[in-house]
């Protein structure tokens, strides 16, 4: 593939369609700048600031933008509660909130996840070592339009009084997709 891709890039460059330096900047942005650390900051802020949490649930794009992050339209934030656990999938392709989580992992784009998440989510959660109480409602959000979904996980116990920086270390990428839970306070304390 390396050779085929390089040949195509050379042709597009010689045609005058692209400047390869611009491709470098895109690759670098996804490798170093845009990633789940952004979502983790958003979650940590929501855990510490009730007014922000409400604004986030009402209008995700606007609330995340207010923190100074560049985020596109139609971000919908869905909150986990003791009664309800949210999970995000894209059964049709690979839609994912790039702005706040970076590029999706391979498993998110896999046939196994896309086919099973909407039909047997508990068994998919088990593949990740996650077991929820049998009475918890599981709600799948299939990203079939230009809305993008971010899960707001529940704040772990024993994290009272923590700064947002410290809270952010509890927030994993997977818990913002709904396929994991945040770290325990004892794991990072």
């Amino acid at each position: 593939m390396q050779l085929r891709v390089r040949a195509l890039e050379n042709i597009l460059t010689q045609k005058g369609y692209i400047d390869p330096a611009a491709l470098d900047v895109i690759v670098e942005a996804y490798e170093t700048k845009i990633g789940p650390h952004i979502g983790a900051r958003v979650v940590a802020k929501a855990w510490n600031d009730l007014a922000f949490k409400q604004a986030l649930l009402e209008e995700g794009t606007k609330a995340v933008g207010s923190l100074g992050h560049q985020v596109g339209d139609h971000l919908v934030v869905v909150a986990n509660t003791p009664q309800r656990h949210n999970m995000v999938v894209c059964t049709l392709c690979s839609c994912y909130p790039w702005d706040v989580l970076g590029l999706p992992p391979v498993w998110y784009k896999s046939a196994a996840y896309r086919s099973r998440a909407v039909k047997e989510p508990r068994s998919v959660l088990a593949d990740f070592g996650v077991a929820l109480p049998p009475t918890t409602e599981i709600r799948l959000w299939d990203s079939t339009a230009e809305t993008r979904f971010l899960v707001l996980p529940m704040r772990p116990p024993q994290s009272d009084g923590w700064s947002e920086d410290k809270l952010a270390t509890l927030v994993t990428r997977d818990c913002m997709i709904g396929i994991g839970l945040p770290k325990k306070a004892s794991e990072v304390a």
């Binding site: 390396q2 692209i18 690759v27 996804y30 391979v106």
Partner: peptide, 21 residues
């Protein structure tokens, strides 16, 4: 579903070039 621990953003250089193109 088979999650990969510490998965890199791109597994091969060409993947990033394809995304950017």
């Amino acid at each position: 579903v088979d999650p990969e621990p510490n998965e890199p953003v791109f597994h091969e250089d060409w993947e990033g070039r394809v995304l950017a193109m």
